[in-house]
């Protein structure tokens, strides 16, 4: 059966830093800057290329924040697409090999 999972990995073409509970990220490719709130930060930190997005949402978002799982997953997909558009996250249908994974 084909996998419908999404795997996300942090790109090397970024600058990032923590500011309180938030994370500042800038794409060095197009200089777009984002400030991720604590939910975005949780997803960002877990973006290791090997953990499916649905699991990240379940374990890092729904377990920590008061939000329904399908709503959280839809929001996370939109968030991921936005970051991927600026080269901040890479998105794949396959998990990264252990060597590639962060």
């Amino acid at each position: 059966m084909a996998s419908t999972e999404t795997y996300i990995a942090q790109s090397p073409d970024i600058a990032a830093s923590t500011l309180g509970d938030d994370t500042i990220i800038m794409s060095t490719l197009d200089s777009t800057i984002f400030m991720l709130n604590s939910v975005g930060t949780a997803i960002w930190k877990a973006a290791d290329g090997a953990t499916p997005l649905s699991r990240i949402v379940g374990e890092k978002v729904c377990a920590e924040f008061d939000v329904a799982e399908d709503r959280a997953l839809a929001d996370a997909e939109e968030f991921v697409a936005q970051l991927a558009q600026h080269g901040i996250l890479s998105v794949s249908a396959q998990p990264a090999s252990p060597r590639e994974a962060l």
């Binding site: 500011l19 309180g20 938030d22 500042i24 800057i33 984002f34 400030m35």
Partner: peptide, 14 residues
């Protein structure tokens, strides 16, 4: 966004 970051950094002393 940059102003927001600066404001937050000022408040946190970063």
């Amino acid at each position: 966004l940059l102003e927001e970051m600066n404001q937050k950094a000022t408040a946190l002393g970063v």
